[in-house]
């Protein structure tokens, strides 16, 4: 069964039916928002059942759109959280990526500004590395990007998409070793992105992210995970009651190869580790459980089949 990421938008009336339907078909609800009288569901659904969900959702004014980034967590790395980089450049982009289903976190570097003085500290590095992909929003000058980017990428082992003022070709030329994606002509700016060409640029960023993540998905498919992160989320939701007390919008954030569980590590790591998935397989057998550098959350990284020899 191939699961595809989609967004369902529809009226609040009888939306439970859609949720039940997706779950019965073997899909997973990643996130549910209720905005006034509208429900937005981000879900992974079986490819062959999309038409069925559309048919059942139609009387409920439901609409199903593909959202390539559902089930991913993306770090939008801004050089600072000063007025120079906020709100427009960083927030507009982070918000736009979110529309395609990704969970974006803004990482504002403490000392990311400047050419010579730019730095990345260990906490920032570790936090960025906890994501599926990092989008670096750099400035307008080639000279600066060329000099500082080496420092800002040190120790980052997840795919990177670089956005900067110079053209895409210039970025490719000055960044060595190459990164996974480039988007030119998106540097520092001080106005809202509302003109069509600016929106096209944001679209281009999303396109580049999708391309990079698709490649990562292909790599993952070669050595599949021992359990799908969405299924793992379902099991934790079902068996750990404390997760329903968490007030965060996504108590469990689904990543491509893991989960971020927003419960304190000290109290819950052991409980999660011993949780039974199926018969005698526990989470601890197929997942690495680590403390996250983000607050005191728990980070779960699913091990591939080649390591565990278990597939559930």
């Amino acid at each position: 069964m191939i699961l595809v990421p989609v967004t369902y938008k529809g009226g609040i009336y009888q939306h439970d039916e859609i949720i039940d339907l997706i779950e019965d078909l073997g899909g997973y609800i990643i996130q549910k928002h209720i905005i006034a009288t509208e429900v937005v569901l981000q879900a992974l659904v079986p490819k062959e059942d999309i038409e069925l969900i559309q048919r059942i959702g139609k009387p409920l004014t439901g609409e199903l759109t593909p959202s390539p980034l559902v089930g991913t967590e993306i770090a939008v790395v801004s050089m600072s959280l000063e007025i120079h980089h906020l709100p427009h450049a960083s927030c507009d982009l982070a918000e736009y990526i979110r529309r395609f289903g990704a969970k974006t976190n803004m990482v504002g570097l403490a000392r990311g500004f400047g050419k010579r003085i730019a730095q990345l500290n260990d906490e920032e590095r570790d936090v960025i590395n906890e994501h599926d992909l990092a989008v670096y929003l750099l400035g307008n000058f080639e000279t600066c990007i060329e000099q500082k980017f080496g420092v800002l990428r040190r120790g980052i082992d997840i795919p990177i998409v670089v956005c900067g003022g110079p053209s895409r070709e210039s970025l490719q030329e000055i960044i060595d070793p190459p990164v996974d994606g480039y988007v030119g002509n998106v540097g520092r700016f001080m106005h809202r992105t509302k003109e069509s060409e600016e929106l096209d640029k944001l679209e281009e960023v999303v396109g580049e992210i999708t391309r990079v993540l698709d490649r990562r998905r292909e790599d993952l498919a070669k050595d599949p995970l021992s359990i799908s992160p969405a299924r793992l989320m379902d099991i934790i939701n079902e068996k750990v009651d404390a997760i329903h007390e968490v007030l965060s919008p996504t108590p469990i954030t689904v990543q491509m190869a893991g989960l971020r569980v927003k419960l304190p590590y000290d109290q819950y790591a052991r409980i999660l580790k011993d949780l039974v998935i199926e018969e005698d397989v526990t989470i601890g057998d197929i997942v690495d459980i680590r403390p996250s550098r983000m607050r005191d959350y728990i980070l779960l990284k699913v091990r591939p089949f080649s390591e565990t020899n278990i597939m559930v």
Partner: peptide, 11 residues
């Protein structure tokens, strides 16, 4: 830098 200058004009 021509491109950078153009951005700063807008900023």
């Amino acid at each position: 830098e021509e491109t950078g200058g153009r951005y700063y004009q807008r900023i």
